[in-house]
Design a protein around this nucleic acid. Structure first.
Lengths: 335, 335
DNA sequence: TTGAAAGCGCTAACAC
DNA sequence: GTGTTAGCGCTTTCAA
């Protein structure tokens, strides 16, 4: 393994100064064509490539052309779509992307953010885990822009891109109620996740505005796996007063519920998931658009990076109820 | 936005030299506890964070603790799992991960690789697109380690982690033949993708060794979407001599084939996909393990980074045939 | 135990 | 057009 050639090496090889090499490498005007040719020849001969680390160090106050993306979990298809869309935007802005997973752990999130800011990233797109994000203030004070996606961060007023989680739950509930259901179960993921809190709040609000009283017997929280959700549904169905419809807080839960779903029970799942349309019964969902979320978040971030100093905004992206069958099973109160 | 405080600022605030601050920041031994306390106080007061760019510049020949991951497409669930596993390994080695998508475009791949090596990444995990990868030689000569995953690169002898694509196709074919099929269609993705070439070769080899002659009428290539695959199957089924079984080159094709699959026709799909087990009929697949591939590739990479100079290896990961119903439909030749 | 000087590879600012 | 000088923020080396 040889040492990386430097501008000095190229300069010597080409018989010019390092400054001239710099000009050629950066395509600055005002270099004689013949000189440029000599330099290019030397560059090719030595296999020279500019060291962007050194460049970024010298050009203080300028951008490093690097943004960071801190997701819950890179392997999650929703997050992966978001990341892919954000990467496309970054590429269009000539930036590369550092990626990391917080795995829903605030300490890990903090550590990874720290590793990113130590490298002077221009900006950060964050799917914040629950807990205070005050620790971002230092980074932001010295110029790192931060945009939250999917969830909002507590303890800090930040640009945020979300969907109307509460409203989408209410829309799903209105759909079930319109199809004649009044005894509607809620099955959901961990309630410490912000989006889940909002969705559960939407469930309750919908019950309230329909004059239906809440029954804890048909509410289940903390379901992390499809099997958990299936089991929770089965025990509710075995009770004396079983639900006639189910609202699932997200795709994982919806999937589990579907596996244990009798044909006469209706289901609407929040979040779309791969193949939901191909299952039998096909699952009615309130879908969101992860790619749009990534594009929007990255757009906001680069606007900030390029000098936008307006007050922090929250962008709420639309969702779409997609009737596919499972949500249209008629209930006992269908008029 | 304030300027980022430097070691000098901290030194002045604490009344010591920059060198002492450096020692404290890096937890070097041989600093008086009281001095360290003073420095820590100043660090907290100013919100100082070490600039790793400057650090990496000074410590030439040392690692930048950054690796890069260049995938086909970050949004692809297979790639996302691989990336997530690789990121976990990187994290355990104290490294951060730069990520990029090549979108099956050699020029884009080259550009992104270049942006990565300009930042002096220690290593690169690459899902190579088709075409020559000679351009990596420069980077490798100056110390950037490269490991290929999923596909092998042409024009360069590199560490590679793959599955036995040809063998897995042969295993799938043997399964169909054992269930009494002899007229077996092949439906596949673009043949310029290395894994697809291998799988198709496995299809042909299996036919050959079973003494079955190939029929171009029941072979389809270039299917990129489930709908394409469904359409291709439909026209084959409408012919005078339709297939009794189908081998699908990958999950996307398998999914499309399944949607158009009559109950008496068998299907084995290469690659597992989300919910393949929940469909009706459930899809028999030859599954691979993307997380294992990511872990293995990252393991190889860090071994190289930490000085392994043995000749390049190719690691072949095992696959698993999972019978789920669609592949066990009996054919006309069942004894 | 602490500090001063030098330099990593590059570019801003100025001189020629 | 091209070169010289200085310095980005840090760490290596050596001296005190």
């Amino acid at each position: 393994v040889l040492a990386r050639p430097t501008m000095k090496d190229v300069a010597q090889e080409a018989g010019v100064s390092a400054m001239t090499v710099s000009r050629v490498v950066n395509a600055d005007p005002g270099v004689m064509p013949e000189t440029a040719v000599k330099v290019h020849r030397a560059i090719r001969k030595l296999g020279y490539q500019r060291d962007d680390l050194a460049r970024q160090l010298r050009r203080t106050g300028q951008l490093t052309q690097t943004i960071a993306l801190l997701l819950d979990n890179v392997a999650d298809p929703f997050m992966a779509s978001l990341a892919s869309a954000a990467e496309d935007v970054a590429r269009r802005h000539g930036s590369v992307v550092l990626i990391g997973s917080s795995r829903d752990d605030l300490r890990r999130e903090r550590e990874v953010v720290s590793a990113f800011t130590a490298r002077r990233v221009d900006g950060l797109i964050l799917i914040p885990v629950s807990g205070s994000h005050r620790f971002l203030r230092n980074a932001m004070a010295t110029g790192t822009r931060v945009v939250c996606a999917d969830r909002s961060a507590t303890g800090l007023d930040l640009d945020t891109v979300v969907i109307d989680n509460r409203g989408s739950a209410q829309e799903a509930m209105a759909h079930l109620i319109a199809h004649g259901h009044r005894r509607i179960a809620y099955l959901g993921d961990r309630l410490d996740i912000w989006t889940i809190q909002e969705r559960y709040a939407g469930y309750r609000a919908a019950l309230h505005s329909a004059g239906i009283s809440e029954d804890p017997a048909i509410v289940g929280h903390g379901l992390r796996l499809p099997e958990d959700a299936a089991q929770a549904l089965r025990s509710m169905l075995a009770s004396l007063d079983p639900p006639t419809a189910v609202l699932a807080s997200n795709g994982i839960v919806g999937l589990g519920v579907r596996a244990a779903l009798p044909p006469q029970v209706a289901l609407v799942s929040l979040d779309d998931f791969f193949l939901a349309a191909q299952l039998d019964p096909a699952v009615t969902v309130v879908a969101q658009n992860p790619a749009a979320m990534g594009t929007t978040a990255a757009g906001l971030l680069f606007a900030r990076i390029h000098g936008d100093t307006s007050p922090p905004r929250t962008v709420v992206l639309p969702t779409q109820l997609i009737p596919r069958g499972s949500g249209e099973v008629p209930g006992p109160h269908l008029r």
